[in-house]
Design a protein around this nucleic acid. Structure first.
Length: 194
DNA sequence: AAAGATAGCAACCGCGATTTT
DNA sequence: AAAAATCGCGGTTGCTATCTT
């Protein structure tokens, strides 16, 4: 029913130019965040509000760090993911200077592989004794040789001697466990009831 | 050196939740 | 109370840079 904003006339798509970024920054520094649907017109942008919001939150916000993730950040993301699952906005809320999109991308491109290298299933943070279902975990592009090549992964946060959940989340004093429901199941088992 | 494969990232899209009318 | 509008989240796609052969 509802047309996506990108389908409307006079709405630009694709990469943002410096001029567009500057217009958005100028507008928000003058008027503040919010009322995203009115921002494009007010700021003189041929974008939809949704796109402006995304651009601001993920890339233009002055408090964003950008750049490489530190080991402490990686560790925190892994622990939070074990506790929260794919709820990136909640995870981002606990990691200053990082956007949910950035964390999500970093997880998908780096951390998943890192965990798999350690023999840990990134979906449930349990030790994986066989990689027979590798494709399911990592997507079609994962190959055996890829994992063989990445054995030199450095930090040793996972203990391969443990047989149960390696990250329980219980040692994280984030005041989250009591406030939110457990992570949604990621695999298809949860949906198989349909 | 060139072509193909792969990885990483920015942005798009769909949908559920929330707020407003 | 219901419908419409808007917001926000998370999955996915597509482009570009880098690596491998």
């Amino acid at each position: 029913m509802k047309k996506p904003c990108y389908a409307k006339k006079n709405i630009k798509e694709g990469a943002w130019s410096e001029q567009e970024d500057q217009k958005l920054k100028d507008y928000i520094s003058a008027h503040g965040e919010g009322s995203w649907h009115t921002v494009p017109q007010a700021a003189g942008l041929y974008r939809c509000g949704k796109s402006c919001r995304q651009r601001w939150l993920n890339y233009l916000r002055p408090d964003l760090k950008r750049g490489n993730f530190g080991e402490d950040e990686e560790d925190l993301i892994i622990r939070l993911h074990a506790l929260l699952g794919n709820r990136w906005s909640l995870i981002a809320g606990r990691i200053p200077g990082r956007s949910d999109n950035e964390i999500k991308n970093y997880w998908n491109s780096h951390l998943q592989k890192k965990l798999i290298n350690k023999g840990v299933d990134p979906n449930n943070h349990r030790l994986h004794h066989s990689f027979s279902n590798l494709e399911k975990v990592t997507g079609a592009s994962a190959t055996k040789s890829h994992f063989e090549n990445e054995q030199g992964c450095s930090d040793g946060n996972y203990n391969s001697n443990e047989d149960q959940r390696s990250w329980s989340g219980s040692d994280i004093n984030l005041d989250l466990a009591s406030k939110i429901s457990p992570p949604r199941p990621i695999n298809n088992e949860a949906n198989s009831m349909d």
